[in-house]
Simulated assay, not measured.
Amino acid sequence: MTESVDVGKFKITWLLDGTYPCTPDFIPGARSEEGRHLYQKAGLPPEGPSIEPFHAFAIEWQDHLWLIDTGCGQEAGPERGKVPEQLRSIGYAPEDVEGIIITHLHKDHTGGLLTPEGRARYRNAQLYVGESEMAFWTGSHVPEGNMGDHKVTKAVLEQYEGRIKVVPDNAVIVSGLKFVPLYGHSPGHTGVMIEDRGQQMLMWADLMHSSVLQFHYPHWSVVPDMDPERAVATRLQLLEQLVEEDTMVAGSHTYGTGRVRRGEIAYELVPMDADDRH
Rank of each mutant, 00 (worst) to 15 (best):
T2Y: 04
T2E: 07
V7A: 03
F10M: 05
I12Y: 05
I12N: 05
W14L: 07
W14K: 09
L15H: 02
L15V: 07
L16R: 08
L16P: 04
G18D: 12
T19G: 05
Y20V: 07
C22V: 13
C22I: 03
P24S: 02
P24A: 06
G29I: 01
K41G: 06
K41I: 03
G43R: 11
P46G: 10
P46N: 10
P46V: 06
E47I: 03
E47C: 01
G48D: 04
P53Y: 07
Q62M: 06
Q62V: 07
D63W: 02
H64V: 07
L65D: 00
D69G: 09
G71D: 02
G77Q: 15
P78I: 13
P84I: 04
I90A: 04
E95F: 10
E95C: 08
D96I: 01
V97A: 00
V97H: 00
I100E: 00
I100T: 00
I101S: 01
H104A: 07
H104D: 12
H104F: 07
H106Y: 13
G112F: 02
G112V: 04
G112W: 01
L113I: 08
L114K: 01
T115A: 06
E117H: 05
E117R: 08
A120C: 05
R123T: 10
R123M: 06
N124Q: 13
N124T: 12
N124Y: 08
N124D: 11
Q126R: 10
Y128L: 09
E131W: 05
F136D: 04
S140T: 14
S140K: 15
S140P: 14
D149V: 07
D149F: 09
H150D: 10
T153W: 12
V156T: 02
L157M: 13
E161R: 12
G162A: 06
I164H: 03
V166N: 05
V167L: 15
I173K: 02
V174M: 08
S175F: 07
K178N: 08
F179P: 00
Y183T: 07
S186M: 09
P187C: 06
V192Y: 00
V192H: 01
I194N: 11
R197P: 06
G198M: 14
G198K: 13
G198E: 14
M201A: 15
L202E: 13
L202M: 14
M203T: 07
W204L: 14
W204E: 14
L207S: 02
M208L: 15
F215G: 03
P218D: 10
H219S: 14
H219Q: 14
W220M: 03
V223H: 09
D225L: 12
A233V: 04
A233P: 00
L238Q: 02
L239A: 08
E240K: 10
E245F: 08
D246M: 07
D246T: 12
M248P: 02
S252P: 00
H253Y: 09
T254R: 01
Y255A: 11
Y255K: 14
G256T: 12
G258L: 09
G258N: 13
R259T: 13
V260D: 09
V260P: 01
R262S: 12
R262L: 15
R262P: 06
E264T: 10
I265G: 12
Y267N: 04
E268W: 13
M272T: 11
D273S: 14
A274R: 15
R277T: 11
